[in-house]
Structure formats: C-alpha cells, structure tokens
Design a protein around this nucleic acid. Sequence first.
DNA 1: CTTAGGG
DNA 2: CCCTAAG
Length: 410
Amino acid sequence: MGPFGMETTPGFPDTFAGFKSASVDENLGHSMEDKMSDMKHFLMDPHHDNTAVDSFLGLGMENMGLTSKMEEFSHGFDVSFLPDYGGVNTFSTQDVEAGLKFEILDGILDGVDEVEDIYASHELSSIVNHFPPETEVKKNELEGDPYGLMNFSSESYSPGISGSIGLAEWSKETVPYAESQIVSSEKVKDSWDTNESEDDKKPLSTFIGSWIKRKNRKQKLLNTACSRLDSSRERKSCESYDFRPRKGPMKKYIHTSMEKTFSDDQLTLSESEDDISVTKTSRTKSDRRKNQRIWTLDEVMNLVDGISHFGVGKWTDIKNHFFHYAAHRKPVDIRDKWRNLLKASYNEKHNDGQAEEKRKSVARSIPKDILHRVRELASLHPYPFSKSPCIVHDSSRSRSTSKNKKKKSG
DNA sequence: CTTAGGG
DNA sequence: CCCTAAG
C-alpha cells in the first residue's frame, strides 16, 4: 500500500502510481497539506456539482502527469474519493463552475512555469506512455493521439470548459502525437528556446509553450471569474474554493541564505559575492510580480467589513474571520491592501468633482461607496502612517471630527 | 508570532 | 507581493 492507497485504484497505471508515491515521500510535510484537505472538502462538499469535480479531476490528473515536480498539485492527490460524490445536488451557478475551472487552469499554468523542473525529471516519458487508457477518449476523433493526452480537453472531458476559456485551442496548436518516446531534457529545452520553428519534432514543448503564452490573458479571465464567484457566494458559506496550486515556500530564496552563510564564513572573493547578489536581486525582482493576485471587489468588501468589525491593526483576526477561505491572503497582504485603499480614498478625495475616471488613478475599479466606507473607517481608526495623508483634517463636516483624534475610550 | 514600515 | 525590524 502506498501512502494514499492509490495503487488499488482500478485503472490507475502502475507507473503513475509508483511515481506518485515516490514524489509524495519526498515532499511530505510540505505546507500545502492544509490546502489539500481543503481541496478534498471542497470536492466532497455537496454544494458543488459533478461537472466541476469531473473537469477538475481530469485537469488535475493531466497536470500531474505532465508536471512531475509540481509540488502542490501532484502531492497527495487521493483519487479514492472519486466515486464518493455521487448524489450531490448542485449549487452550480455557472459562475461557480467557471470560477472553479479558471482556478484550476490557472494553477496548471502556474505549474507550467517551472518548465525546467518539469523536464528535469525523466519520468515524463514513462508517464506519457502509461497514461491510463481508461481515459475517456473518443478514439475515432483522436486517431493520432492514442491516449488523448493532448486532445482530451473540451469534448471528452468537460463540454462547458471550451466555451469559457478556450481550452479547445490546445488541440488546435498541438501535436500530432503524444508518443514522445523519449523526451530528453536537452532536446526539449532546445526547442523551448526556439519554440516557434519545429513544432513537428517536439510536440510537447510547443504545446506547453503556447500554453504559457496565454497565461496572462487567462489570468484576467480568472480574476473576473473569481470576482463573480465571490459575489455569488454566500457570506456564510465560506467553503474553501481556493485550492489554486502555487509554488510552496520550499525552495524560496535560497540565494539569500546562501549569501549570508558564505559571505560571513569564507568566500572573500569579490567575484562570487557580486555574482550572488546579482542573482539574488534579479531573482527576487522577477518573483515579485509572479504570484500576485489582484484583489476582487468582494475581497475588498470583506476587508472593509473586517476592519469595521475588528478595527484597524487586527490583521490576523480579520484574516481568520473574513479571509479564512483564501489561503493566499496573509495578514500582511490584507494590511497592504488596506494601505492601498487608504491611498485610493485619499486620491479620490482630492480629485473630488473632476476627472473621476482617470485610468491612472489608484481608485480605479473600486466603487465609490467602497471608497467612502474606507474613508469613514480611516477616520474612525487611526492608522499609523508617518506621512498619513489619509487622516481627515476636515472640520467642515459636522461630526466624527472629534472621534478621529483618539479612539481611546477606556 | 504579530505588526509596522519600506522596497 | 516580499523582507525586515521591533513589540
């Protein structure tokens, strides 16, 4: 028995299962375990309909096959709960489904960012070869693709998904064959750099390349969907829908620690020091923008609610009570968002009557009523801000001027 | 560990 | 978003 008893799952290829166990053993104890449990809860939750689950499973398995080193998604994915969702009823607004799919897709795309990691492991080829033939594929459609690896997306698995995201483009741009008997990392990397020219010989890389190219556009769609999903969600039912796979904190900022260790100990060579620091800065710089999700309107509203409930500064409380469904929003992020909101409200106040819809404005896409609430809260709770343009110094307004000076009542 | 402040 | 210093 493996860690998750997956070998017993009928139709699950041995190679795949073996690979899975190995990977799990390596990475056990990773911080994404809570996310996984969240995911399971989500999937088993009767609130969500089969279509979403189905498509998710399809995408998830595909993803696992392709990205062997993808920590989070490939981690403890337990297929054994698959038949358990029978008899669920639906809460399936299309928004939810779409949102879910967007999340999944985006996660996959994120994982694909680590292209080198993907190809670093040679398990890829074997996985491709042993991919479950049980996969629902209409064989007559996919003559060139015996396992339906490249083509499974729209028709076979989830009819709804092609319309919303354009996953059907996969089949358009991809590959005659998933055969890829042996995909050596060098070959793939080579074609990765030149990935426009020879799409005949290196199908997989081309496939993934085009995939990544669309990532940005899909990110937008994702955010839209999430926003709508949030809006349609009940405030009470804060089930975790956020299982978007992300890079764990595992191999983060190795350079930083290395720099400290080495520069202190030995390595008085200026050369290496310079090299390291350069590496570090560029690395972090590129990482900055990488995992950043724009705040949805609903999140902003949650934030405002949370602040009006707990007050400014209780970021952890706000996170736990208003953002416990969002694994990615750390208390610091919430505070940062509040900081930005203050700036936004400040800007809006200065603009006043003129040029409200400035595209440059920080307050763009944030409704006025939200900003109004922000301003009220800002005046209600003092925020330690050295430059603090946010504190209202307007006495022409009738009341609440005395309040904002000190909130200390006891 | 949490928050504030700066990048 | 990330990192660091300070309570």
